[in-house]
């Protein structure tokens, strides 16, 4: 496959775990991708407040970073998450869609370096900050 079309790749939504969470495509650029995670009761981690768990945000940031790497590599080729760190700046507001932006800011023959942020409406008021690395692999 020559090139990688993030919008086309996600046009029919996600399968597996992404589908179970209700994750959707939002936007992308030359080295970044944004996904959307609409609020859903099944994502709640704290029933008392209705705040969603941090796990779904990790999933979204992992996937957004993955798509950013595929865009950057211009191909749908395999990689594996090596590590991912998420800082929770504040809880996501119950009822609001969370937008997660992953960026691949550096790629070598072996490693892709990613970073990203998540917000629930105002990019200037992020709720999570993410940094991670992926092992770059050959072909499927």
């Amino acid at each position: 496959m020559d090139g990688f079309d993030a919008e086309r790749f996600t046009r029919h939504g996600f399968g597996g775990h992404g589908a179970a969470l209700g994750m959707r495509y939002h936007a992308h650029g030359a080295d970044w991708a944004e996904l959307a995670l609409p609020y859903d009761e099944k994502l709640i981690g704290d029933p008392a407040s209705g705040v969603i768990a941090s796990g779904p945000i990790i999933t979204m940031m992992d996937m957004a970073a993955s798509i950013a790497i595929w865009i950057r590599r211009a191909a749908f080729v395999p990689h594996a998450t090596l590590d991912l760190r998420v800082d929770y700046l504040r809880p996501a507001m119950p009822g609001k869609t969370v937008i997660g932006r992953g960026e691949c800011y550096r790629i070598t023959r072996s490693i892709a370096f990613v970073r990203g942020q998540a917000h629930d409406g105002d990019p200037a008021d992020p709720l999570a900050h993410v940094a991670g690395t992926f092992m770059v692999l050959g072909s499927w």
Binding site: G16, H17, G18, A20, G55, P56, I58, D62, T81
Partner: peptide, 21 residues
């Protein structure tokens, strides 16, 4: 199906969620 990433493997996010719980 609800915790799959690529075919035949768990999604890293689902593993992360399990670790969190």
């Amino acid at each position: 199906d609800d915790v799959i990433g690529r075919p035949g493997f768990l999604h890293g996010g689902a593993i992360s969620g399990l670790l969190e719980v």
